[in-house]
Design a protein around this nucleic acid. Sequence first.
DNA 1: CAGTGGTCTAGACCACCGC
DNA 2: CGGTGGTCTAGACCACTGC
Lengths: 237, 237
Amino acid sequence: MSVKQEQIKHQIERWIQEHHIRPGDRLPSESALAGQFNVCRTTIRGAIRRLRNEGKVFVKHGSGTFITRNLQTIPSSLDRLYSIGDMIRSAGLTEEQRLEYIRQTACPEEAAEQLEMKKGEPVIQLERSRMANLEPVAHSINYIPVSIAGKTLEAEGFSGSLFQHLEQHAGIHIVGADSQIIVPSPTDVHCQKLLTGPESNVLLLKQIHYDEMNRRVLYSLDYVRSDIFTFWIRRTR
Amino acid sequence: MSVKQEQIKHQIERWIQEHHIRPGDRLPSESALAGQFNVCRTTIRGAIRRLRNEGKVFVKHGSGTFITRNLQTIPSSLDRLYSIGDMIRSAGLTEEQRLEYIRQTACPEEAAEQLEMKKGEPVIQLERSRMANLEPVAHSINYIPVSIAGKTLEAEGFSGSLFQHLEQHAGIHIVGADSQIIVPSPTDVHCQKLLTGPESNVLLLKQIHYDEMNRRVLYSLDYVRSDIFTFWIRRTR
DNA sequence: CAGTGGTCTAGACCACCGC
DNA sequence: CGGTGGTCTAGACCACTGC
């Protein structure tokens, strides 16, 4: 999508290289670039937007577009939504999970609040402990309203990715989540399962997941060992 | 900036209300809206982009723009960069800080790595303990290369916002940061200062701050009481 | 003041979706 | 196939910056 802007972006990058433009230097004006590459200014602006999103240039209204320092991109886990399984696999480890239980139950208060349903209405509760290279690294508890997932989860033998399962069997596409980052109390039972030594610590992610329609389809508690997972986030003012 | 797109956005929202358009329903096409509000399609697209960023509509290529559920916006602390002082004040509390010390010193290894300087090169080290309504809630340690801040920090009596000070006295505008979220070891001395009871916990934010040029200008360790600060982040796939 | 980026217009063609 | 959003063009004016 938008191949041209991408092409122009690379042309600009090559031009920068060839002309030995250094950090802090100004790029030619948008109109000049448009003339130079024989495209419309809109296209140039699209290319510059991409360069800016990649942190390679910054723009000052009224004075120009400037080169920033080269910037290595840091694989940040928190600005994008990845499942715990994704995170384990992307670290090059082999993921394994043990299904503690899956059952239909009455929705507890906290989950009900997040899912915007009434306490006690039926939900599917799913609890899994998760291993990387055979070592326990995380523990997940998921709540999905029965009105959303139907019986698909209980019926089929569930294994693997919950996101994928919801897409294939319920037609639900999770597109985002609001996540709260919490330090759980050491007395929390789920926490204790992960505390291997006195130096290990646990983080808790409470996440309410949305589909395209902003329907709240999944509430998760993910306990993760903080010596295994490091969470990064790029923040801007 | 871009007043018109904002106006059109509100007109579309009003139109939705007046016509009792419900979640899942389709909006008129972009061309139709352009005709209806007597503006160019580009402007309509700008307005729709804003609505999409606010989570109020979603767009399907080839089929239309649709209303999502109403979505309350959650004040998330982590997608934008706020100073600790900002956070305290925005919670309606009165911020106070006690300057533990400010001195020029040899840069320790961890800070040097993040600031991309050599271990032992001169930095200004600043350590503050921070109170909200007279109760200690956070503890900040900041490292700024002397080559960046010069002597401005030692010379002037520093008080208040570090961001603001850097802007006014060194012309440095911090525009972003990469932040790592860590559960500190309970044996960490800075951690212990904040642990008031057995149930209180502490989060550590290690943050490397950038200016417009992506120069690394400030490395911070912010210990915050997790019973006082809750961190939210909206994640998308 | 001249030059820059930010926005808006009017029109065209393309890529995708559902019938 | 017609209608939708996605992109591109050419041109205009505005808002901001630095001299």
